[in-house]
């Protein structure tokens, strides 16, 4: 029943190494965790404290992704017809969940696990499992986006 399709191992590994390198540099030079949700949340904090580096990191994130798309072109098709309200609900849940749970795929999944943090290992196991179950329900039971 397992079908493998669209597997892109080399670009996945290369991209992963770059993400890991970003996390390494931020930790070794600045002593900071490269968790995107945490950086975004703290960047929006009022009153603004030591926050310039966070905005610059987020700016870099867009510049890096934009530079690659500009150089290589868009290597995938933009999906069409995904329901707007469902996307908004998804974003809202990700916003609540990552602040409540103190991290996302980068903060818990990459940085936390690389420190063998018990909290991050548990959080990553849960969000992976729940995401797989959710995708099953959305795609194969509700029939959205297939």
């Amino acid at each position: 029943m397992f079908q493998i399709a669209e597997f892109t191992p080399w670009s996945a590994l290369a991209g992963g190494v770059l993400i890991g390198l970003a996390a390494l540099l931020l930790l070794v030079f600045n002593g900071r965790v490269a968790g995107i949700s945490g950086i975004l949340n703290m960047a929006m904090q009022r009153p603004q404290g030591d926050t310039a580096w966070r905005w610059l990191f987020l700016l870099g994130l867009l510049l890096g992704a934009g530079a690659w798309v500009w150089l290589a072109g868009l290597t995938f098709e933009l999906r069409e017809g995904f329901p707007l309200w469902l996307l908004a609900a998804a974003g809202f849940l990700v916003g609540v969940g990552t602040r409540m749970g103190g991290g996302c795929t980068s903060g818990h999944g990459v940085c936390g696990i690389s420190r063998l943090s018990q909290r991050s290992i548990v959080a990553t196991g849960i969000f992976m499992l729940v995401a797989i179950m959710t995708t099953y329900v959305v795609r194969h039971i509700a029939g959205v986006g297939v």
Partner: peptide, 10 residues
């Protein structure tokens, strides 16, 4: 670091 992260994601 942000640029590298964004490149990696793209």
């Amino acid at each position: 670091a942000g640029v590298l992260f964004g490149l990696g994601l793209a």
